[in-house]
Every structure is written in structure tokens, then in C-alpha cells.
Amino acid sequence: MDLSQRKHWNENHKKLTNIILKPSEHQNSKELFLSQHSLLHSSKISNSPVATLEDDLLKDLLEESYRKYPIKAPDTRNSIVWHVWHVTRIEDMTMNILVAEGDQVLHTDNWAKKLNVDYPHSGNEMTEIEIADLSENIDINALLEYRNEVGQKTREIVSNLLPGEFRNKVETRKINILKEQNAVKEEASWLLEYWGNKTTAGLILMPATRHIFLHLNKSIRIKQRIQNN
């Protein structure tokens, strides 16, 4: 995605924000979401004809650049691999629990073991020791496969939403499921309160799209800072 494509993505996100709660725009909202979302994951999962933001990040990205921590940047200290893991964890828990009330992808097919890190949470409020551990030890190939599966599951969930369901409010019992699964660290309990005030539309407009866009852009800047020096 070049600069003009990113600008177009932002314009479409504003458009999605304006139509997503209108029942008459239900199908258009789903289609626009799927288009926006496809540009935030590998082109492999949507057969995107153009390079996606994730494709841009992963192209020629060295393993040492993935894992480098701490980062000397004005807006983050965290490694690229942490950013990728963080957005994937949040997409997994918000879409699969708070929207679909199913199972987190993490809890299926032995993903926790494949990833080689024992962190069931979102990554918010992690200590420096924890971030360093994750950055050093996570299996990068498994992470990218996990990310693809989470993205595919999100697309299925949103594709199957019925008219009016974008207006559904996040129910307390779903928040409690995340608590039981230790999906958010106690120090980051504010995140559960934040999600608890959202609708399905609100979750789609931030964790499932905007949140990913911001972190991938940040990761690309980290890559450029490291590999262009």
C-alpha cells in the first residue's frame, strides 16, 4: 500500500463509520469492511490483487528486525513481533468472544504451544521482561499462521452477521468469559471496561480495522528505522 492507498483506506474507514449502523446499508457495510480488512492481513487470505499493509511489512523483513527490543522510536519501545502478536490477540478475543461468542482461535488446534509463548492475554500492560521474553522466543512462522487463521475467522463472523446485529451491545457475560480466560491482565482491566461500552460496530471499527492499521503502520516505521540505517 503506497501513500495514496493508505489515504484511500482512511477515507473508506470514515465511510464505514458513517454507514455501519444504518440498517439499509447492512450489506454495503459488510462488503466495505471485508475490503478494508483484507488490506490489513496477508493477501493470501483474501486473494487481494494488491499488496496489503501486512505484505509491505513482511517483505524483506529480517528476523533480527522482527525481534529487536527495545526499539528507539518516539512512539513505541516494543518489537515488531510484539505489535503483530498484540493486534492478533485483540482481534481474536474481540471477534470470537465479544461478537460471535465462540472459541478464541488461540484455544484451538494447540496454538498456544505452537507460538512458544505462555501469554493468554492481549499484551496490554506487559512488563519489559515479558516483552523481551516474547520478542526473543515466539515462533514467527506460527505467529503468521495464527494471524492468518484469526483473520479468516473474522471474515466469516462478519460475513454472517444479520441486519441489525451491528447495533448489538457487548454483553457482560461475554466480558466475563474474557476474564475467566485471563485474556486481559489485571493491570489492564480498563480495556474490558472500554470494550464493555461498545457495540459490534464499535469493535469492528477499532480492534478489527483501525487498531490493526495503526500498529502495522507503526511496525513499518520500525522496520524502516532499523533496516535503512
Rank of each mutant, 00 (worst) to 15 (best):
G102C: 12
N124E: 10
H107D: 15
A132W: 04
K113A: 15
E130R: 10
V117M: 07
Y119A: 12
V117F: 06
N110T: 13
M126W: 08
I131P: 00
W111C: 05
V150E: 02
I131E: 12
E149P: 00
D118P: 01
I140H: 05
A132V: 02
Y146L: 06
A112C: 11
E145G: 00
L143S: 06
D109V: 09
G151E: 04
I157G: 04
T127P: 02
I138C: 01
H121V: 05
G123V: 09
Y119D: 14
H107Y: 14
A112V: 13
N148R: 12
R147M: 09
N141L: 07
Y146S: 02
L144W: 03
Q152L: 11
E156G: 00
Q104W: 05
N137C: 04
S122W: 02
R147N: 09
A142C: 03
I129C: 06
V117R: 06
I131G: 01
D118Q: 11
N148T: 06
T108P: 01
A132P: 00
G123P: 08
K114F: 02
V150C: 01
K153E: 10
E125I: 10
I140F: 02
I129Q: 15
T154E: 10
N137R: 13
I138W: 01
N124Y: 13
L115N: 06
N148I: 01
V117T: 09
N137T: 08
L134N: 03
D103I: 10
A132F: 04
S122D: 13
L134E: 05
G102R: 13
E156V: 06
I138T: 02
Q104F: 03
R147Q: 13
E128G: 03
N148P: 01
L115C: 07
V105P: 02
L106K: 09
A132D: 11
S135Y: 08
